[in-house]
Amino acid sequence: MLAEALARHRWWIALTLLGIAAAAVVPFVLMPFHVRVGQMILLSTGLGLAWTLLGGFAGYWSFGHTAFIGLGAFAAGLFEVNALGTEFMRTDPLLGFALGLLAGMAACAVAAALVAWPILRLRGIYFAVAMLGVAQVLSELTNSIEAFQGSLGLVLPRIPAFGLRTEAVFYYLLLIAAVIILAIAFLVKNARIGQGLAAMREDEDTARMLGVPTERYKITMFVLSAALTGALGVIYAHSLGYITTGSVYRTDFSLNMIVYNLLGGIGTLVGPLIGAAIMVLLTQVVLGSFLNLHMFLTGAMLVALVVAAPKGIMGGLAGTWQSWRRRRTAAP
């Protein structure tokens, strides 16, 4: 199945590898500000892809995925500061960061597995609102339980720079993360589980009747999606250097993950990249001077999108392409 999928998508894969190679030289040619914009695009792409593992493939739209950004960030931070200690982080920062990353991902995976059983029994809007609740509750607990230092803030240990500038280090980390998530999403989509998920998205009851282990599939995807989102949360937190509840549990993250997918085309693999690139360029570069209007613009963008292009750019392109082909073949 995989070999066939690789062959079928060889042009896309070649294009992706070319894109990755091009992305890898960016920090050497562009200005630091533009590298930061690149960083944001990579983070957003990764988040969009991690969200789509559950939302796009299985049709379970989470409205509270920022829960895992925050949980990953705080779990990793507290682990590095309290369990490993500053001494360990100073002598071996790379190993410390790797362990922190694992801790953050593990925390998200465990949390997701715990809430999966009750809330994945809910569908559609009920699941979406339940996830909104998960994010809200986690952020409140982080904020009000003193040991988590959510309101006070947590200073994260620095990670080694390998002679690169700071923004370049995080750029590469996020690039690696995004590529890994893309590869995972590709594998999932073209494996047996991907077919099962697609069947579930169309009609869960029928899929179940036909023998698709829906319960196992959706829990797997939820845990996977949570752990990957958590990994991005850990990297993002380190790039900030100092985190509070408000800086990692951000409602606009939850919303944006959906927006990138909607804008690009939901359920596709290029969709999140297109969506993230457009949104980041629009909000950071074009509208960069209206920082206090960011939330407003994100909201307005979302509203305009749902009303004007419900299938997203890729969906719209695919529709146009198909109708063009149909017209050509229909013509005498």
Partner: peptide, 15 residues
Amino acid sequence: ASMLVTFGVALMLRN
């Protein structure tokens, strides 16, 4: 999708 619209409007109003 209409739920998404209301989510967007909530953010706009909050802002």
